[in-house]
């Protein structure tokens, strides 16, 4: 209960700042409209109008809330206008990309830890891959894959994996290397095989690192999936909603897609946090 108060305070501050910004940013349009109609408007009317425009520069929180309500609860899940439908499209690409990225990341980390050539050879490329703007290569990935007959979920998932493998590589290399010299010496005195050292020491020791990486990785996956929907003419997904919203000046639609994406990311990270807690508690590593 006690932790609820600071959270509530922060939310209240954000919402009131948002409302204030709404008034400031939308006031010009209201004044222009009033001038055109030749009427004088008072301050309270001004404020009321800034929060009730059809295409505001910045929609008010309650407008976004209403839009989200309309496009989730009030619409059938299968409808093209349902946010749940679009969120699911993005989520499925996110999850597939996350699975590919995590698998690839762990595999690369395994190679880097066990093979000196890979240690020297792979890491610079992994780092270089992340310096390339994802927006620049996302269309190329889509086009190249389309030309060999792959379209739909997989191209988006690959873009998503492209972003999420990196934190997993970095985290898991650190994790696999986290056993201290004493723990390694102990295995040596048992004449333990590399496989034993890996499964009985490196893997369990890397668990806290794994979950930290997964939390960053899943958020990156979601970004990747949305970016994959932006420049590619996708017909569904949160990215499509963002793009369509900006084409038609539907700021309320943009913001509701944004907030949905944020809520989705928070839920995914929260879910991993839950798995992390239960796993580490069972391993005796969470007190």
């Amino acid at each position: 209960m006690r932790s609820l108060i600071p959270v509530a305070v922060v939310v209240a501050i954000i919402v009131s700042a948002w409302y204030a910004a709404t008034v400031v940013m939308n006031a010009q349009w209201t004044r222009d409209q009033a001038a055109r109609a030749g009427v004088e408007i008072g301050f309270s009317e001004l404020v009321a109008d800034t929060m009730d425009q059809k295409r505001p520069r910045l929609p008010a929180p309650h407008q976004v809330g209403a839009e989200i309500w309309n496009t989730t609860v009030e619409k059938k899940v299968t409808s093209k206008r349902s946010l749940v439908f679009h969120a699911w499209v993005t989520l499925s690409a996110t999850l597939l990309g996350f699975a590919i990225g995590t698998g690839l990341g762990i595999l690369l980390a395994f190679g880097i830890v066990h093979d000196r050539a890979m240690d020297m050879g792979v890491m610079p490329w992994a780092i270089a891959s992340q310096t390339v703007p994802i927006l620049a290569i996302a269309p190329m990935i889509i086009v190249v894959l389309f030309s060999i007959g792959i379209s739909g979920l997989l191209p988006k998932a690959i873009i998503s994996a492209y972003l999420s493998f990196f934190p997993v590589v970095v985290g898991m290399v650190a994790g696999f290397r986290s056993p201290d010299p004493l723990q390694l010496d102990l295995m040596k005195t048992y004449n333990a095989s590399k496989a034993h050292i890996f499964w009985k020491l490196r893997v369990p020791a890397s668990m806290p690192f794994l979950f930290a990486s997964l939390k960053i990785g899943i958020a990156a996956s979601l970004v990747g999936a949305i970016v994959g929907e932006l420049p590619t003419g996708a017909v569904a997904g949160l990215g499509t909603r963002l793009l369509a919203g900006s084409y038609y000046g539907q700021t309320i639609q943009i913001w509701s897609a944004l907030l949905t994406a944020a809520a989705l990311a928070a839920a995914l990270v929260g879910l991993i946090g839950l798995v992390q807690r239960t796993t580490l508690v069972r391993m005796g590593m969470h007190r």
Binding site: Q183, D185, L186, T189, N191, P204, G284
Partner: peptide, 20 residues
């Protein structure tokens, strides 16, 4: 060492924290 002829006790206990 390969014949596992000795047991070694280190300065620190070095128990693996994830094992009982």
């Amino acid at each position: 060492r390969k014949a596992r002829a000795y047991g070694y006790v280190f300065q620190a206990a070095g128990l693996y924290p994830w094992r009982t």
